[in-house]
Nucleic acid binder design. Structure first.
Lengths: 336, 336
DNA sequence: CTGAAAGCGCTTACAG
DNA sequence: CTGAAAGCGCTTACAG
């Protein structure tokens, strides 16, 4: 492997001059610059990342801390990761992806070992155990998912409360007065999956205000249980004319459950879900939905993190963290 | 941040002794070891990754080179990544995930900058442009997906040819004599997605041998096109009594297409797919399938890569690369 | 069983 | 506009 010394020797300059050409932190004459670039080209020189990190305290790597639970919908997580990855790349950052069970320990280790310039925490829970670690870190971090107390850290999330209200309002506007809301499994709630109750509680409140009966259930996150749960709900609430889905697996299972019961949408049942367009297209889901906006949220998180990392590197005072909840976007597939 | 010098000072030893306690490469007396471990504990010392990489030429990071195409099924890719991530973690490796459009350039840069100890290439194409890069790398690499010429590199993949044969045989055993095979979009083939034609050509050959009529089509990878393609196929081949699916989106769309045409499985149509159990469970797919075995393949790839990296670090001569095709596993859901 | 010191390949004040 | 040199925090031969 060629080193910066090899490049310097070949170009007939000092190592520092090569370094300054690479970083652009100092004006270098065009002639010297051309010689150096030629040498770099000829040697196929690429700087050693470890040496660079050691000398500059910058790695150009961001950590993405994911936690995959068997009862949550993994492909949804992937959408965030893809959004993050794309934007990170545009900004010249590589991505260290961690799916460690022990998130707090992994974050502490990766941060303390200075492998990264910043971190994005996915699927943040109400009382996320990774949150205290952030305050011990020398690098900035950004949250995807709203905790009970963000403690001054930047947060990006879908406005699940508004989503819950909108879902009820849309149904109400079409004359539906009795609805079923299918949420994630109760385990997700117990684990602190705040998005579940943020949507649910807002929907309940909206239903109360607009004189709509709303039956709330928690369904499983995979077959065959979720199908059984849906059937049980239809049996228990035979007068419901609309269903709200905040559970991807339930959305995936609904078409076959409906086929089994001989009910159709929107004729016999109005349906609205909360999932990504990608998801709907891949699985032929003919249901209107509030978009998860995962890629967009991932993109926003990276942009904010980059701002933080730049400020951190420049030793600029940091602005206080902000909470950004993006408004729900309806994709109408005619199922209401 | 505490450094190794801080630990050494606090424990009253030299930096090298601390280093040797950490690496275990030298016997250290229990008493000194205890003092050092106490100091490490008290200071919360975690070694600087960049310094370590620079001094030891080892990073304990592996690169996972993914390429996400809009016409391929992203969640399937995720299964590989999760398998890799878990096993990597068990072996003490972190994972740098790249979804760069320009795979060869990304691999070259990451390898040359010495950010990684090894790489896993996902979704390897027949004439994969990343393959030539591997031979210029100083780190070992492993392929997930069989190219035309593996050039001595380790390969792990599902035995798609055997999968094609098994699918036809299972149908034939139940008396089906006219079948439809739904493959990925033709773009995937043109891009070198060898798994498509490996399964297809073997199925064609098997059909020929066992006197079965096999109609091969390429369907789109998302709605609404894939639904249209399936309907067109049923219209074109009204006497077919069985369908083989090597296309996740088609599998996802089939239930609603069947419902639309009023046909049921297995009564009116025998169905077998090639997808993961995870996929079937999440989307309520009632079809028997050949498992993709993505997590298992990811796990195997990491284990092999770890062996290679160990040998590389120890300067041991490397054994020649091997091709490992894992046999198809049937998951019977009673749809044949 | 332990230590002093060189060296990994960069960046960046310091100096001119 | 350019260079000589210190220093980032480790590992590992060399020496005892």
């Amino acid at each position: 492997m060629a080193t910066i010394a090899d490049v310097a020797r070949r170009a007939g300059v000092s190592r520092s001059t090569v370094s300054y050409v690479l970083s652009g932190k100092r004006p270098i004459s065009d002639e010297v610059k051309a010689r150096i670039n030629l040498a770099i080209e000829e040697l196929g020189y690429i700087p050693n990342a470890g040496a660079r990190a050691l000398a500059s305290s910058q790695t150009h790597v961001i950590a993405v801390m994911a936690e995959f639970y068997p009862d949550e919908f993994a492909p949804a997580m992937l959408q965030y990761i893809l959004g993050i990855s794309r934007t990170a790349q545009e900004h010249g950052y590589d991505m260290l992806l961690t799916t460690n069970q022990d998130g707090p320990a992994a974050l502490r280790r990766i941060s303390a070992s200075q492998m990264i310039d910043g971190a994005i925490l996915l699927n943040v829970a109400a009382k996320d155990r990774r949150l205290p670690v952030i305050h011990t870190m020398s690098q900035p971090a950004v949250l995807l998912g709203l905790p009970d107390d963000p403690q001054g850290v930047d947060v990006f999330d879908l406005d699940f409360e508004e989503a819950g209200r909108v879902m009820v309002q849309l149904m109400r506007a079409k004359g539906h007065r009795e609805l079923i809301l299918v949420s994630q499994p109760i385990h997700v709630v117990e684990r602190g999956g705040a998005y579940v109750w943020r949507l649910r509680d807002a929907a309940i409140e909206e239903a109360r205000k607009s004189d709509v009966t709303l039956h709330c259930i928690h369904a499983a996150s995979s077959q065959p249980d979720v199908g059984r749960d849906l059937n049980a709900a239809f049996d228990a609430f035979p007068h419901a004319t609309g269903i709200l889905l905040n559970n991807e697996a339930a959305a995936g299972a609904l078409p076959s459950v409906m086929a089994g019961r001989g009910i159709r949408s929107p004729q016999d049942l109005a349906v609205i879900g909360r999932f990504s367009d990608e998801f709907a297209r891949t699985f032929s889901l003919p249901f209107s939905s509030i978009d998860s906006a995962a890629e967009q949220l991932g993109d926003l998180a990276v942009r904010q993190l980059v701002r933080r990392m730049d400020a951190h590197a420049a030793n600029t005072p940091q602005k206080p963290g902000a909470i950004r909840l993006i408004p729900p976007q309806l994709i109408d597939r005619g199922s209401i």
